[in-house]
Design a protein around this nucleic acid. Structure first.
Length: 425
RNA sequence: GGAGGGGUGUCUGAGUGGUUUAAAGAACCGGUCUUGAAAACCGGCGAGCCGCAAGGUUCCGGGGGUUCGAAUCCCUCCCCCUCCGCCA
């Protein structure tokens, strides 16, 4: 959510930002008008409430001295009726304003490239080179079948399409990757590990911005009104919802969780294998920082995610997303993509964003600055990283002529000495 | 799931319809005193909104109601505690 004061006082700057991302400026105009109405109504009701409070006290004093109060009571009742009428009018205005505010996306950072869609993204960095093979590289589905590490048909039987089932060395590898990433972030990057609930309430989903817009894309337990998390960002960022953070900033948190996404409307598109699934594992990083430092923190967040891939010796690239391609809540975002030789394409495994105070405002998450004044924090998050596509790139990049997959050294301790995955006979 | 007891500011905790403008204590911050500290004493000390300001207003778990007036009474939901039941 944007600051209404920013819309009120710097409307042109906000409008310019919204245009850059291709968003509708009309909503911001509407918000500006509703805000004006709201303030007029607040002033009016506050004055009436002052009057009611003082007249009500008179009644108390009169009663104490045994005098008649019917006339004053009638007066106060009339004031009360006015207040009720104005209050309900005010509530209507506030609700409409709130709805408008929740639908206005963040203003993009001034420095990011301007463009309508992914075609305007800027390649910020390429690390390593694509491996060259003396044979035709297989894709992860063929490799997985040979190695016997997936059993997707049985996943379909047990649940449905998009619910992958890993088996034997596959599930062990997944577990090893999770351990490797969590250890890296906690031991080298200063994050505190958290194992949060995988199911959250509606207030949490609203806090990080999944609701109201993404309801169709999530799994909902109707009886309890609980939601399955689509990313660890939700429970981890909501850790400090409605709080004034009582510890020194920055705070770095990391968590492994499964993620559940209905992916409504995406059936048939990129759904082969484990490229796009309804349930997958991910390690996420979340930062709560002082506003002045958030852009520097974004750079180190990206480095933290990169280190995961660098440590595994993978070929990847980093994109700086343009104004038309960043997500609703983000002011600036980097994507990290891994090279997948089997399908000759790049796979997005991480998205690192600075939300500035956009999330903090709807989360009501604040801190005390050096002078003791409460201010909204800046929040950031980044995947560190998503498992299925990491698994795909790992299998495809490290495949050998004999059909085996050589595991990077960093993983071997977590694989209890296993150095390569070999085809089942 | 059933029965009972609770939810008040950073914490403890008073308050059962009108000087509550939410007592008091603790913690914390500043000051006096002191060589320094402690103690003692003095002062300060929640958040949001409106307002240039003075100031006003809202918030006692959430929502709704009764009343001239609600922390206080009623309804409802959530959470915590104790006991019972069920259960990995």
């Amino acid at each position: 959510m944007l600051d209404i004061k920013r819309i009120r006082e710097n409307f042109d700057e906000v409008a310019e930002g919204l245009r850059r991302r291709g968003a509708d400026v009309a909503l911001a105009e509407r918000a500006r008008d509703l805000d004006q109405q709201r303030r007029a109504l607040v002033t009016q009701t506050d004055e009436l409430k002052t009057l009611r409070n003082s007249r009500s006290k008179e009644i108390g004093a009169l009663k104490k001295s045994g005098q008649d109060t019917t006339a004053v009571q009638a007066d106060v009742r009339a004031i009360g009726d006015q207040i009720t009428a104005l209050d309900s009018q005010l509530r209507g205005v506030e609700e409409t304003l709130e709805t408008a505010m929740l639908s206005i996306p963040n203003v993009p950072c001034k420095t990011i490239p301007t463009g309508p869609d992914a075609s305007a993204n800027r390649v910020a960095k390429v690390e390593g080179v694509a491996p060259i093979y003396a044979f035709k590289p297989l894709d992860h589905i063929a490799l997985g079948e040979k190695l016997g590490i997936f059993d997707l048909p049985r996943g379909v039987k047990i649940t449905g399409s998009g619910f992958p089932l890993l088996l034997g060395a596959g599930s062990k590898l997944q577990r090893a990757l999770v351990q490797y990433m969590l250890d890296l972030h906690t031991e080298q990057h200063g994050y505190t590990e958290m194992l949060p609930p995988f199911v959250v309430n509606t207030a949490s989903m609203r806090g990080t911005g999944q609701l109201p817009k993404m309801a169709e894309d999530m799994y909902h337990c109707e009886i309890d009104d609980f939601w399955l998390i689509p990313t660890a960002e939700v429970p981890v960022t909501n850790y400090f919802r409605d709080e004034i953070i009582d510890r020194p900033l920055p705070v770095y948190l990391t968590a492994y969780t499964p993620c559940f996404r209905r992916e409504a409307g995406s059936a048939g598109k990129e759904t082969r294998g484990i490229l796009r699934v309804h349930q997958f594992d991910k390690v996420e990083m979340v930062k709560f920082v002082e506003p002045e430092t958030s852009y520097a923190e974004l750079e180190t967040l990206v480095v933290n995610a990169e280190d995961v891939l660098k440590g595994l010796g993978l070929h990847y690239r980093i994109l700086e997303l343009c104004s038309g391609d960043i997500s609703f809540s983000a002011a600036k975002c980097y994507d990290i993509e891994l090279w997948a030789p089997g399908q000759q394409g790049w796979l997005e495994v991480s998205s690192c964003s600075n939300f500035e105070d956009f999330q903090a405002r709807r989360l009501n998450c604040r801190y005390r600055d050096a002078t003791g004044k409460t201010r909204l924090v800046h929040t950031l998050n980044g995947s560190g990283v998503a498992l299925p596509r990491l698994m795909i790139a790992l299998l495809e990049q490290f495949q050998q002529a004999d059909g085996s997959v050589l595991l990077p050294e960093a993983l071997r301790p977590y694989m209890r000495g296993v150095e390569r995955l070999v085809p089942a006979q």
